[in-house]
Design a protein around this nucleic acid. Sequence first.
DNA 1: TGGCCAACCGACCGAACGGTCAGGCACCTT
DNA 2: AAGGTGCCTGACCGTTCGGTCGGTTGGCCA
Lengths: 206, 206
Amino acid sequence: MPEHTGPTEASERIVAAAKRLFAREGYSSVSIRDIAEAAEVSKANVFHHFASKEELYVETLRRCCESARSLIQAFAEDAGREPAEQLRDFVRADLHRALDDPDATRLVLTEAFDANPCRARTLVNEVFGADFQRMTEIFSRGQHTGSWRRDASPALMASLMLAANTFYTAHREVLRQLPGVDFADDPDQYADHVVDILLDGIQKEA
Amino acid sequence: MPEHTGPTEASERIVAAAKRLFAREGYSSVSIRDIAEAAEVSKANVFHHFASKEELYVETLRRCCESARSLIQAFAEDAGREPAEQLRDFVRADLHRALDDPDATRLVLTEAFDANPCRARTLVNEVFGADFQRMTEIFSRGQHTGSWRRDASPALMASLMLAANTFYTAHREVLRQLPGVDFADDPDQYADHVVDILLDGIQKEA
DNA sequence: TGGCCAACCGACCGAACGGTCAGGCACCTT
DNA sequence: AAGGTGCCTGACCGTTCGGTCGGTTGGCCA
């Protein structure tokens, strides 16, 4: 709690309600009254725990960033495996993490939507940076120890994977409406096919 | 003009200001007073031309969808060329169109950000559908007349291209902050490399 | 010349906003 | 028993919101 107070059952309910509402409606569309009602506390109590609406939002966002970051450790030190399999597992895991907590994902993605340089830098440091670097390392290892082509930039390949997962997460409903799309409700199938295409391209006959 | 009135120099300024402000600040953060001031008209005049804030937003969004859709004709009937070159040109053109009118793009992408099924369907019909279908056609032709592998779904490949361009447009500032990214200010280079990877994959030595 | 109507404006309205404040209540320390 | 402290509340504040209204202007047609 940024305020002088400690965490409480009520303050946890406030943050939970704020996360849900901010993610679904957006910062400006949600009033403190809405949050207080959803958390079943008085409006004044919200201001007891958080100095302002802005501070409540920042705290909520901070927690969402934290939970989005926590994937990293799970993938520490699996260096013995094939880069291609590492990549596949990582893309699948990243996609699942994003889909498992849609409110947190949505809040972070909204923040990343053409943010100003300062916020973008913070988000890179807090959330995207580690995953991105991890992915570039997989690509670099594939280039140095495997047979991957060396004229493709690891950063660009990692961006493409990040793009694939972000798009799937952020625009799933649009995907669902697009003709010929049968993978909108099967993230594993999507991740597998994306990695397949990335690895082998589309020109080579399978 | 949805209202009983006709278009005016002032009403055009109102829509222009609304587009700019809605795209940059979001619907709820922008007041009619802000728009009126930016358009240099009175607040009452805004309500003279548009029945409500919501109606002004819908009209603004409608125009943005229109301008996003207008690319299609430019690519009608170039069937004689190589699918690979068609694809490259299309991805480049699509990216440029998005970057040329960032406010319109941002408004449409915000609307597409996990919209409800009804809105998503409208957006697909109004904006994404045509481009998406055009891209799937290129992939299908590549599979039938060229040597492209037939086990990859055209819809998935088109989604991946859409994802690449959307991500570049929506999260360019984040890209700029990511280590090793040197293509954040060179969309043509980005589009070329993305298409290169899609065509040949990353495993084959160049 | 007179009537009409769209374009436009200043002033105003009730509602909702973020935020404040004095005080009640439960619990701890002395 | 007394005082202090953190949690919590209802009532209230000034401001801003979307929207309305009465009225003025200026061009067009009869």
